[in-house]
Design a binder for these strands. Sequence first.
DNA 1: GAGCACTGC
Length: 851
Amino acid sequence: MATLAPRTPRLPIDEVLDDIVAALRRSPCAVIEAPPGAGKTTRVPLALLQAGLHGGREVLVLQPRRLAARMTAARVADSLGEPLGATVGYQVRFESNVGPDTRLRFITEGLLGRKLHADPELRDVGVVVLDEFHERHIDGDLGLALLRRLQRERRPDLKIVVMSATLDGAAVAAYLSEGAAEECARITSAGRMFPVAIEHLGGDGELHSGVLRALARLVDEGLDGDVLVFLPGAREIARTAETCAGFAAHAGLQIFPLHGELPPAEQDLAVRPCSRRKLILSTNVAETSVTIDGVAAVIDGGLARVAAHDPWTGIPTLQLSKISRASAAQRAGRAGRTRPGRCLRLYAQHDHDRRPEHTPPEIHRVDLAGALLDLHAFGVAEPAGFAWFEAPPAAALQAGEGLLRRLGAVGPGGQVTDLGRRMLAFPLHPRLGRLLCEGIDRGVPGLACGAAALLSERSIRPAGALASCDADADVLVDLADLEKLRRRGDERGLLAGPARRALQVRDQLLRALPRDSRDRSKEQGLKEQEREDRLRMALLAAFPERVAQAREDVGGFRGLALAGGGAARLGPGSVVRTAPWLLALEVEQRREADRGAQVLVRSACAIEPEWLIDQLCDDIEERDELQWNAARERVEGARELRYMGLLLERTTTAKLPPAAGELLRQMALAAGPEKFVGDAEALRGLMARSAFVAAHVPDAPVVTEAVARALLAELCEGRTSFAELRAADLYGQLLARVAGGGGLERLAPTHVQLPGGRRAAVHYEPDKPPWLASRLQDFFGMSRGPAVAGGKVPLVLHLLAPNGRAEQVTTDLAGFWDRHYPEVRKALMRRYPRHSWPEDPRTAAPPAPRR
DNA sequence: GAGCACTGC
């Protein structure tokens, strides 16, 4: 048996290694809490192996990141004086270094799911260690739940060890003990960190000038070492670099930007020791993924961009938010790795103290479709009843399940369909799995592999690159450039790293194709236009609800109306410049403090409206009964109704096959398409606001999707009208609970009645001053907040005519605003007591915090 | 004036 080389230094965790081993002999599970510097990653797995707890099988160590899996494996192998791939090995995507004698295997969290699909009993594994569990990635959460289930049902001998730096270990221990014969053991260790002196500088003014002030202070007070600055994004980094350039040069500091889009060589520059003192301007990469030695001081801007997923629209969001206290502590700790340090926070102490303790774990934020498909494949028919470590929000579960049904991956009984099984064979999001299956069925597997690779990895073009042509799809142009890169090494206009990674993923997908679809000669025999059309149809199957219709340009951008409701803009990098109908493939809803919510489409694909009808008819006509039900659900779903309205504009029911035509006709007869569209959207808004209210107001009435659907059914059958619904106070009640008064609901309808009896969907165009718009958005959840400019409230109304056509009208509701501002102000004062709220918004400056 | 960080046979 391998033993530690004598030169290995002692670490704090060594004090408790015997306790850990003893505990695991008694109990099947253990939780180890040890702060950074304790040495848990390098010592604990090895100690378990040396104690023989693995029973001759493997010890599997889960890491959140590939780099960590590789590096720690190398360090542990080195501590044994062995090469990698002997006793100690690692395995990450595209790369593996293990041998026949390997007993300690470091893998990424994402690989565990793949291993479980290959061998549901994990027969080669004796111990699983989940490292850095406090980061709470969805793969880690899901991994823990699946391992617990496996241990209880089929592998009582399997040992589960959870290691965490800052997490409250009690919750994990309770989860692992719940209903078990043996309690889960809990062991804590000291860490090894140097003290960091933290100061709060308060923050008014902009980030970049705040950084300069803090830097000047550090230099003034005798800075000795490097400075690490945390900023939310590349844009802020560039701005701060500009602002600090002169001072830094004067103080002998060299500036290094550090963020994810930089090529590895430039990232290395920021991390490596340097002859001059460094000023490193970094995003969150430096919080967990990259460690930098020699940092004497941290300047923390207190902000980060947080990615999430909006279950109500199915659109990914990117929101600038305040970091949690745990995250702030982690950032400060970066100054105390090798010596005592300082941390200057660009926000006030009271601001810090009021922040949430932890960043919400991924399971509360992200799209669950992939995780849910895995669960179904592991035999969990009802994910809502699954023993999650922490259950995801009900709305997200419903959205994920809905998407899986719609993609045809899961049937109504929660069983994985044949199509779903085929999708599971690929390491891709279910949408992209469907894209590949559809590409195979339509005879273009090669093109589909390329498109799926591009859509699953980060963009291959620099941010801000402008469209170079007018084409049918961004992925098609990207694929042509990837081909140039592959054939001739031509990197022009591309980001070399991401482009090569996309090629690597594409090749992996090509290898994963079923044997009988690997022959690409037939595909290559097709005319180019035919091939591309087939790919675009496959994309429609993968993104069925992301249909969009072009509208007039807004501020130089192509305006889009989304089938699911709401407006979007086509990014300037997209090549889809003229197509009237398209798919929004890569979408992002941004919300920044100083401007309203914006939906930006970065990657699009032109489609023919007839395909929409074809797709619907396919679902209705050609599939079995389960599919028929799914299609019916699709048509009946509130979101679909607007989509149906758009469809009805372009076609008549006469062109449809009988069943589809009948369904459409019945629905159209029930209320008329314009009513459909209006009421469905209003209901969706109601649910969104209700969810928002429920999150902020204890005991608020909640309108669940079931209730909303029931109401919708009543509307469709003519038993009630939207006006009655509103009169019944459900809608007003909810808003009143937040706003504390009547009248406000009239500021937030998604629809209004116009003179002449026309209905209009309302989209508030955010304008200056933006601060009020962003505050109001908090009230109305998903709806765009109104804004005030010089006393005028400009509103952009998308009028939906009975034929489904939308027209855009800008109007001015200044008088309306004047009548209601006092109520709004009262509510704002209650909600944001630390700010002073002007009597008259027309003359007001942005609110300043009260001293 | 428009792109946080990760990850998968």
